[in-house]
Design a protein around this nucleic acid. Structure first.
Lengths: 246, 246
DNA sequence: GCGTCATATTGACCTACATCAAAGACACAG
DNA sequence: CTGTGTCTTTGATGTAGGTCAATATGACGC
């Protein structure tokens, strides 16, 4: 990691590595959750671990959807493009999340590494074979996709009906909720993506994101320490701003 | 049907009706698709048919998610609300679609009948019991939810990055695609929902939807016959408008 | 240290869409 | 046929957030 190359990613098949999935630190929140040892072994047999540097494209919208992925380290951005280049982020992924949803065997979005990251890769055909034999796995996948769908609906409400402040506040809150467990201080949320990525996620411009953040800073609701990340000073006000309660 | 009452819906358990699901006309596109006779019998044993009049609320956001539904006739709107009443439609459902996705055992959205409609209702607990025994059913559900997720991502692109014309054009096109098979003339799309419902689906106001439609009419791209519905006169131009290709 | 490059912030101005307000257009009841 | 309520269309005006442009800030290499 820490290689800042934008070149093709290093690939290691799990058979080369020792103890492939058994001691995976994200298993409890990933696709592999709730699988028996035996089932885990079957899954690991078809998986490949790969590392990608910051900025590397993992999948391309409309490419043939040959693989599914599970993020194990770093962070990934998902997005769709319009012909003239307008971009909409459809999600940010962190360890435990999966990607590779398809429509007619084509990926529904592009994915790119925000920082150096690691993923588990499963050939779609082999995984679908496993699904019919491992009902636990299929059930797990169903739960993960359903959860994604609920989040997508929240995002529709945000994109269609919230103001800039409400959007930015909501975004910060979801980051707190997700990163909550991992960070020592719950109130300092890491922000690996740039302002323009955030803008494209919230349906705003870079400039509006920046202005809104400085307004929140002036109101002492957040602090923006140099070195990245955002510090939440007044969670209560932020919650109210996010729902338009003022 | 055709009852315009807004009262509680009539309920009939499938056991009362003869041949409950075997001759269901929407089976091939619904949850029940790809099930064997035996499996279909198991599913029908836990299902209840119910009819709802126009305007009747089927589920309420944040209510306990005790049931899943499959639409068999009519049309349903799904939406989420902000505390101050702003509304975002998350989808319109037609025969074959399902609803009842939950988050922490609470419904993620409200659902209301746009016109007199019929649904199949499944108690969640019993259905989940069936899922573990009928892998075909679980697989079917996974495919349906995945498909929903892809559509949700398209909608995010629309809400976050498209202009009013692009939004309305895209909306008309998806209606053509969905209703294509059922209508005799492919170019006349039914529009059971009102302008304000469309606005809340596209992140626009009623007025902007109306203005945009009359613009498209002036350009001879669509016609708006009295009696409801929209006639597509120039599908090609509409496709281009939807993607911002001009 | 200093220059370079990428990203973030701030300011001045503009426009697409919202808001507010007033007619039309139907559907239905009596 | 006429009144009433609901939904749609059209017009006049306002504004949140976009666009364009100029610094500022920071990370990294040398």
């Amino acid at each position: 990691m820490r290689s800042h190359s934008h070149t093709a990613s290093a690939v290691t098949t799990q058979s080369e590595a020792y103890s492939p999935c058994e001691n995976c630190n994200v298993a409890q929140m990933s696709l592999c959750h709730a699988l028996s040892c035996e089932e885990l072994r079957e899954l690991s047999a078809i998986s490949t671990s790969l590392e990608v540097g910051r900025g590397v494209t993992i999948i391309n919208e409309t490419d043939s959807a040959d693989y599914l992925f599970n993020v194990t380290a770093g962070s990934i951005k998902l997005f769709k493009l319009l012909p003239d280049g307008r971009r909409q982020m459809t999600g940010f992924l962190f360890p435990g999340d999966f990607l590779g949803i398809a429509m007619n065997d084509l990926y529904a979005y592009s994915a790119e590494a925000i920082e150096d990251s690691r993923l588990c890769r499963f050939p779609r055909e082999k995984l679908e074979g496993l699904l019919s034999r491992l009902p636990q796995l299929e059930n797990r996948l169903l739960n993960m996709v359903s959860h994604e769908l609920v989040l997508a609906q929240d995002q529709m409400l945000l994109l269609g009906r919230k103001t800039a402040v409400e959007k930015v506040s909501s975004f910060l809150i979801t980051l707190v909720k997700r990163g909550g467990e991992s960070s020592a201080d719950k109130h300092l949320v890491p922000l690996p993506m740039g302002r323009s990525d955030i803008g494209d996620y919230l349906g705003l411009t870079t400039e509006t994101v920046s202005r809104t953040l400085t307004n929140l800073k002036k109101q002492k609701i957040i602090a923006i320490p140099s070195g990245g990340g955002i510090e939440i000073l007044d969670q209560e006000s932020l919650n109210e701003l996010a729902e338009g309660l003022d």
